[in-house]
Amino acid sequence: MSGRRDELAGNLAQVRARIADAAGRAGRSPEEVTLTVVTKFFPASDVRLLADLGVRHVGENRHQEAEAKAAECADLGLTWHFIGGLQSNKAAAVAAYADVVESVDRAKLLRGLSSGAHQRDHVVDVLVQVSLDTDPGDGGRAGVPPVDVERLAEQVAATEGLRLRGVMAVAPLGEDPLPAFAKLAEIAASVRSIEPSATWISAGMSGDLEAAVESGATHVRIGSAVLGSRPARR
Rank of each mutant, 00 (worst) to 15 (best):
G140R: 15
S88G: 06
A17N: 11
G84E: 02
T36R: 10
R221M: 12
G112I: 07
A51F: 12
E65Y: 01
R56A: 07
V167G: 05
V156K: 02
V213Q: 00
R62T: 03
V213N: 07
G161F: 10
H122T: 14
A180P: 03
K69E: 00
V123T: 14
S114F: 04
A23V: 06
D135H: 14
A96Y: 04
S88A: 15
K90Q: 04
G216D: 06
A93C: 04
Q129V: 00
I19K: 06
L173N: 13
G27Y: 03
V144S: 11
R16A: 02
E32I: 09
S215F: 08
D46A: 08
D148A: 15
D52M: 05
S2V: 13
R111H: 12
R120L: 11
L109N: 04
R221T: 11
R221L: 10
C73A: 13
D138K: 14
V124H: 03
G3Y: 14
G54V: 08
D133H: 10
P231L: 03
D121Q: 15
R48Y: 04
G85C: 12
S229V: 12
V101Q: 01
K69M: 01
D148E: 14
D208N: 08
E60K: 09
G174A: 11
D135C: 07
E175D: 10
S193V: 12
A180C: 03
A189V: 12
H63L: 15
G223K: 06
L110P: 01
T218Q: 11
H57M: 08
S193Y: 07
P231T: 11
